[in-house]
Simulated scan of single mutants.
Amino acid sequence: MVNFLIRRITGAAAILLVIIAATFVLFYAVPRDPARLFCGKICTPEMLTHARSSLGLDQPLATQFWRYLVGLVAGRDIGDVHCAAPCLGYSYTDNRLVLDVLADRFPATLSLAIGAAALFLIAGVGSGMVAARFRGTWLDKTATGIALVGSSLQIYFIGIVAMYVLVDQWQLLSRPGYTSPLQDPGQWFAGMLLPWIVLAFIYTSTYTRFTRSTMMETLGEDFVRTARAKGLPGRTVFFKYAARGTAAPVATIFGLDLAVLLGGAVITETTFNIPGIGQLAVRSVTSADLPILMGVTLVAATAILVANIVVDACYAALDPRVRTR
């Protein structure tokens, strides 16, 4: 198991290094001059020269990349500002360190991701198991029908419709927004409920169809037929044997989906005006804040790679055959 994890971590580190290099190259491939963006609107030639020197843009590209890598593990100086490790740069728009900006935005994204993930995991897996348990009945057809509708809709459409109906017309839910749970737990829950429901509805469709198909496939396996041949009750066979065989594939896609949400649910946060990492990414594109965009990219990539390692470890624990691959 240890060797398995070492291989996975080493591979993830290599992939992350490639992502960092690609992101760094794209940073300097954009048509806008990073030094001019850093300098601001009123920028004299002397100020522009000082900005290039502060950012290290007057050095060779290889040297700049090396300083960037060193900054990630040991920190570096950006002009008169010391950027502690992991140093992701300095925001042109906020005039703050990128890591500090991301840290302010991350709680909103974390709240959105955890709440929605809990809902769509429970609803999706539950409805998929019900559909598989009562295959061919009205329960199966209802669950698969709702899943088909959910997979056909987009968040930016259903989110706007849900706000208009549930908030503006019927006034059943509060207007979406983020409040720190430490400040006001009730307001935090009320403001995040609608984004949770909408995001969970979209994701539930995937988990319903995936759980149903996986359960039906598992129910046809030899070990399930053997359990039935031994005279075990149908409920025991379904929940103890078939459900356990479905846990590993579901855990795989759940880990990746959660990582994507933690990396920033761009459309959801923009639709509901949630001040998270996804909304920050959109703002950094419109304002050409390249350090922020690089930081968001690295955070999202790291979240996905870490989730892959965790999922692989869970999969290896559930299925020892994976450890030899």
Results as ranks from 00 to 15, higher is better:
residue 38 F to C: 05
residue 40 G to W: 00
residue 29 A to F: 06
residue 17 L to D: 10
residue 38 F to S: 11
residue 29 A to C: 07
residue 34 P to H: 05
residue 33 D to V: 02
residue 14 A to G: 14
residue 40 G to S: 03
residue 30 V to A: 12
residue 36 R to P: 00
residue 25 V to R: 12
residue 18 V to K: 09
residue 30 V to K: 14
residue 23 T to V: 14
residue 33 D to H: 05
residue 35 A to T: 01
residue 24 F to A: 09
residue 29 A to G: 06
residue 32 R to I: 06
residue 37 L to F: 02
residue 39 C to F: 00
residue 24 F to N: 04
residue 43 C to K: 04
residue 28 Y to P: 01
residue 35 A to S: 05
residue 42 I to D: 14
residue 43 C to A: 05
residue 37 L to D: 07
residue 29 A to N: 07
residue 42 I to M: 12
residue 27 F to A: 11
residue 28 Y to D: 00
residue 32 R to C: 00
residue 40 G to C: 01
residue 15 I to E: 08
residue 30 V to E: 08
residue 25 V to G: 04
residue 28 Y to S: 08
residue 40 G to Y: 01
residue 27 F to S: 10
residue 17 L to V: 13
residue 42 I to V: 06
residue 20 I to M: 14
residue 41 K to V: 00
residue 20 I to R: 08
residue 22 A to G: 08
residue 24 F to D: 00
residue 31 P to D: 08
residue 22 A to H: 06
residue 17 L to P: 09
residue 40 G to K: 03
residue 30 V to C: 04
residue 41 K to W: 00
residue 36 R to W: 01
residue 39 C to M: 03
residue 20 I to F: 11
residue 28 Y to V: 02
residue 38 F to T: 02
residue 34 P to F: 01
residue 31 P to R: 12
residue 16 L to Q: 07
residue 26 L to S: 10
residue 19 I to Y: 09
residue 31 P to K: 11
residue 18 V to Q: 09
residue 40 G to T: 00
residue 19 I to K: 09
residue 39 C to Y: 01
residue 29 A to T: 04
residue 33 D to M: 05
residue 37 L to C: 07
residue 42 I to G: 11
residue 21 A to N: 08
residue 21 A to W: 12
residue 19 I to W: 11
residue 16 L to W: 08
residue 21 A to D: 04
residue 16 L to N: 08
residue 25 V to F: 12
residue 41 K to R: 15
residue 37 L to R: 10
residue 22 A to W: 11
residue 27 F to I: 05
residue 43 C to S: 05
residue 41 K to Y: 04
residue 15 I to W: 08
residue 23 T to Y: 05
residue 23 T to W: 05
residue 31 P to N: 07
residue 31 P to Y: 03
residue 36 R to L: 09
residue 38 F to I: 03
residue 32 R to L: 04
residue 26 L to H: 01
residue 14 A to D: 07
residue 26 L to K: 06
residue 21 A to R: 13
residue 25 V to H: 07
residue 24 F to P: 01
residue 26 L to N: 10
residue 36 R to Y: 02
residue 18 V to F: 15
residue 32 R to W: 01
residue 30 V to D: 07
residue 17 L to K: 10
residue 16 L to S: 10
residue 27 F to K: 11
residue 14 A to M: 15
residue 17 L to W: 14
